[in-house]
Write a protein that binds this DNA or RNA. Structure first.
Length: 461
RNA sequence: UCCCGGGUAGCUCAGUCGGCAGAGCAGGUGGCUGUUAACCACCCUGUCGGGGGUUCGAGUCCCUCCCCGGGAGCCA
């Protein structure tokens, strides 16, 4: 007889049938005539109640059925006579597969703080909260691929180790095989010609530049992979290792880019409300941050669009006492973004056409020559989850921008080649996957939406 | 990196004016009950983050370092 997943077994079609279910024990309640186990197997938000009548004769096994132990249960599924659950399994046989010392097992049958659970990252997926988060994360990751695959985008694999440190997207992690006790030097500086690649190498901060050349031959592409930033950021929305999705489209301008970003987010919101109803409901009840209804509404509405200049005017009009000055030319601070999303718009908003001086060199210069064709998608509570732009496809203008911003032209000749040979308007964006998961799950800290968070000073698991 | 707030039992926390180290939960034992973060009784649990100082006496006051959380910057 095959084992069934809890998500499958909790159904009318198994009532009265003999089933085998495996899982981990959440709680045990014993009485003279019965013992009750609650078990979970990760397949669903629901737990399964197992009733062990005294006559099942497995008191030795019940003794070992402590919180955290893994068990195999053979019994009959039936409707539960008591309140609290619709189905339950009346056990005939119990096998404790792996015991768990209740005095030492860190998870108790009571609530734990998220901070404490972060210290036991290897066990926290067994909790309701993290089970929900990681199932949602899975559904979203799958939906990302489905969205792009349905639209003919190619999933491309851009390098994780790169030599370009020129994007200015933050501090880089070095990749080297040097023996730190004996680093080769020449004229007192590190001699990278003796290193593995013959020159300095880094972990990627973005696959965008490579995605651009793939788009300018394959049409529409996207990346979905890990990204690394060595910034000393200690916040609830930064990770040193995170996953990013970067679509890149040939023959597309900023309007196309925004439309794609909006359609994309709406699709993801829709998928998650369709496939993770129980998970979203659980998180809503537990943390009161965002409801399935709110997410569902987001999947229907058009996002508000506002230019950077309009946003500045809104901020200037407001009576809010901002800590940072509101001036055209300054970047929007967190408090400004929050005011726009929470107070002015009351939902996600796309801010476009930022001053060129606060944006990256590759963004396309607008006709006003003061702003670039950039767009950020801001959402309430989390802030920026998407940053994108139309790319500068005009060789001379790009070269000049690189010179002015101090980007090495020599190292990026291949990037300029794309403008020399059959250049076309193209655009793309980057979505921080964890920020998306964070927004949808309502988790306050981004460290709680990835199994093994990496942040400055933290690499425990 | 900067600014706040913390660090006391396995977990969550209280600890007054500087004067014997506490509670709830968890765990153990027994009881009871179709139980359900079960309930009742009893029992067990301490490097008070580390180091230094003041004092007759420090969880408490001072200095210092470490760690955690929140906010800011950087960004996705």
């Amino acid at each position: 007889m095959e084992r069934l997943l809890i998500k499958d077994v909790l159904s009318d079609k198994f009532i009265g049938k003999q089933v085998i279910v495996c899982g981990w024990i959440r709680t045990k309640r014993e009485s003279k005539d019965f013992a009750f186990l609650i078990i979970s197997d990760g397949s669903t938000q629901d737990t399964l109640q197992v009733v062990i009548p005294h006559e099942a004769n497995c008191s030795e096994q019940i003794q070992k059925c402590n919180t955290g132990a893994s068990v195999k249960i053979k019994g009959f599924l039936r409707e539960s006579p008591a309140k609290g659950q619709r189905y339950e399994v009346e056990a005939q046989e119990i096998e404790v597969i792996g015991e768990s010392d209740p005095a030492k097992y860190p998870l108790q049958k009571k609530g734990h703080t998220l901070e404490f659970l972060r210290e036991i990252s290897h066990l926290r997926p067994r909790t309701n909260t993290f089970g929900a988060i990681f199932r949602i994360r899975n559904v979203l990751a799958n939906a990302v691929h489905n969205f792009f695959q349905d639209r003919g985008f190619l999933w491309v694999h851009t390098p994780i180790i790169t030599s370009s440190d020129c994007e200015g997207a933050g501090e880089l992690f070095s990749v080297t095989t040097f023996d730190f006790k004996n680093i080769p030097r020449k004229d007192d500086v590190v001699d990278f010609s003796q290193d593995f690649f013959g020159k300095p190498a880094y972990l990627t901060v973005s696959g965008q530049l490579e995605a651009e050349f793939l788009a300018l031959s394959l049409g529409n592409v996207y990346t979905f992979g890990p990204t690394f930033r060595a910034e000393n950021s200690n916040t609830t929305r930064h990770l040193s290792e995170f996953w990013m999705i970067e679509p890149e489209m040939a023959f597309a301008d900023l309007k196309d880019d925004m439309k794609m970003a909006e359609d994309f987010l709406r699709y993801l919101f829709k998928e998650v409300t369709l496939k993770c109803e129980k998970e979203l409901l659980f998180l809503q009840n537990q943390y009161k941050r965002i409801s399935p209804d709110e997410i569902s509404k987001l999947s229907d509405i058009a996002f508000t669009h506002i230019t950077y200049t309009e946003a500045i005017n809104e901020l200037k009009k407001s009576k809010e006492n901002f800590q940072f000055p509101v001036d055209w030319g300054n970047d929007l601070q967190s408090e400004h973004e929050r005011y726009i999303t929470d107070k002015v718009i009351g939902g996600p908003v796309i801010v476009t056409d930022y001053p060129k001086d606060i944006k990256a060199f590759y963004m396309r210069l607008n006709d006003d020559e003061k702003t670039v064709a950039a767009m950020d998608v801001l959402v309430p509570k989390v802030g920026e989850i998407i940053g994108g732009s139309q790319r500068e496809e005009r060789l001379e203008i790009l070269e000049e921008r690189m010179r002015k911003t101090g980007i090495s032209i020599d190292n990026l000749q291949w990037y300029l080649d794309l403008r020399r040979f059959g250049s076309v308007p193209h655009a793309g964006f980057g979505l921080g996957f964890e920020r998306l998961v964070q927004y949808i799950t309502g988790m306050i800290n981004i460290r709680d939406v990835i199994p093994c968070p990496r942040t400055p000073g933290e690499i425990g698991f």
